[in-house]
Write a protein that binds this DNA or RNA. Structure first.
Lengths: 203, 203, 203, 203
DNA sequence: GATGAATGAGTGTTCATTCAT
DNA sequence: GATGAATGAACACTCATTCAT
């Protein structure tokens, strides 16, 4: 949240290099294995330089998490924004999420670390994404694009679906891509779950 | 996986105490903070005793994960087994899962650590649970209890839904329980997603 | 000892600010905790500026010690000077010493650090004060104001008495003042010790 | 105060070696320069071994201070005890103090460090010694061996005299001994200061 | 003259693991 | 089988000092 602002352009560059190195290493080896030595080596600066820009390893972790969170939300909302229909937007959002995941495996890997490293960060990350979902769903529901679902539950469910499908197909498969047909099936699942109620009811 | 078998009854007890202490500490402070000293202290034995029963800290971690996985699956399948209808069974399974989560926060907390500590353990954990789901879904589909869904995608989706709803309401709320109406809404969501196809079309 | 002379008035001011900051910090947190960063921050200048005025942390420490020494001796001799009788002068000197101690706890705190930081500084500090005492005693003795005491031993003894009484009542008591009756008792002690020999002898 | 008790004889020996090494090094290079690496090297054990016996560097420092304090007081009281007259006892006590100082320069050097390292330790050290003095003086006064002095002020004064004479002649002189005549003069000074009042009055 | 980025040796401390008893 | 002393590599972090701008 804080992150001392460098006073010179050179300083900014160094700080950016350190942040990138930290993100990479957290993703690659996790919080505990990503030592300051490794981070500074990767960034090509001396050990002590780290502490010119960050107060602690924890601070840099939090910054990286915040940053990833901002970026993934940006990617998702930008992708959704191109579609007027909620369900199309939904699909686009998921595709963006999976793409981001493929390009930044750091997202999953780092978030999971947060449990013990910085519990608040973990909570914030999920809450922010879900809040975005929920707002979109509220609006879609009022337009009749989706059925009369509980948007909060639906939002957390969507987050969960994306999370595990992403883990299974993006992270665990070498391709790093959710195959088209899996994506289709997933969207079918979601559409049915939230379809506008045309008199059907399973209760 | 192996875990040297104790020769005497006393030995078995010591080993069990160590395992329990390890599980507690992994859940409480995470893999890295849970030192062997702490584990042996909590178990009430000398430091060296640990290595009479386990080859390494990693081994005990894997055993704990396997154990938790076995227990949660057991709890879920036992709960489901009481119901003949798949969707009722589904609900019962989720309830069992949330109950287990409430009683063993270790499940989440430890699994997340696995990412870097023992990636295989992470994969196994999810895969086993999902495989169980999938088989149940296959069978339910052939009986017409659920629609013509892709069981693999559905299984991972259910896992994801349970995972995040559990995190949000069991782990993050003091009550440690998913409120009844949230559970209902979640089941509605799932039922609609997998409802037997009665001529509906989502395109 | 040297201390590079600033070329400009602004420079002199900066140097003075650094010296004051250093004195304050040495007194407050000790030599080792008083980092250059803290000193420059307190002085309101950039880190590097420190080295425009001082060669090293040690140099500034020595200067601070010398300075305190000069000031305390000045305070004491000025106070004594107002009295013609040695024993009255003595009392006035002690009062001045205690007052200085109260206003500059740095004196004790810094001097004690000197043991390892700059042994010479420690030695100089005490020697100079004691030398002053001794000269005054010599002169007083020749005038018959005090008895036939060994002035060197007496001088060191007086120093010791002042040192510990000051520590006990000025430094350790919140009041920061030696109570009147303690001062009186102390002076009685000293007077008797050095009283002109009127034929009494305790041997 | 605490200091984990070793469970085996070997452990006790190691702990004792570490304590001795710590005392030596604190005396030789001061608290800050006496690193754990140096201490363990001097003790001939591995770095980590230190932490089997002490919780921190500070703890070992406090223990060393307490220990020195106990020993010097023991040496002094033992020496005084042989004399029935207070003034003789006084002299013997000082001699013992100077002897201890010569053999354990650590005493001064370490105590002075305490200012910032462990202020309580500093206070305790002086207070305990002075308290002992004061009691002895009380008793001597009631027996008429010394005059009607304020024992508290006298005790702190004696402490101060011993402190500075010791520093000047034991620590700063190569001989490491207070020359006989200096000792004599010092005792004369003290005797006069506390002589039984035979009708004299300096006011 | 003033700045602040960069350095890297050094610190206290932790901890999984080994092994003699 | 149980113990606990011993190990030493590793860690996060500090700080006096240098130097290009």
């Amino acid at each position: 949240m804080s992150m001392a602002m460098p006073r010179t352009a050179k300083g900014s560059k160094t700080q950016a290099r350190l942040l990138q190195a930290a993100e990479d290493l957290f993703a690659e080896c996790g919080f505990h294995e990503a030592s300051i030595v490794k981070i500074t080596e990767k960034a090509g600066v001396a050990l002590g330089t780290f502490y010119n820009y960050f107060e602690s390893k924890l601070e840099v972790f939090n910054i990286v998490v915040e940053d990833l969170n901002r970026r993934v939300r940006h990617a998702m909302s930008e992708a959704s924004a191109k579609h007027s229909n909620r369900l199309d937007a939904e699909r686009a959002g998921f595709v963006a999420f999976f793409k981001f995941t493929a390009e930044h495996p750091a997202l999953y890997r780092i978030i999971r670390q947060a449990e013990f490293v910085s519990p608040e960060a973990l909570k914030n990350h999920y809450t922010r994404i879900v809040d975005g979902y929920q707002q979109a769903l509220e609006s879609a529901r009022s337009k009749g694009e989706i059925g009369d679902v509980d948007t909060q539950v639906a939002a957390w469910s969507l987050m969960g679906i994306g999370e595990l499908i992403g883990m299974r197909w993006v992270l665990w498969e070498d391709s790093g891509e959710v195959p088209e047909h899996i994506l289709d099936e997933m969207m079918k699942f979601i559409r049915r779950a939230m379809a506008p109620t045309t008199g059907n009811s399973s209760e």
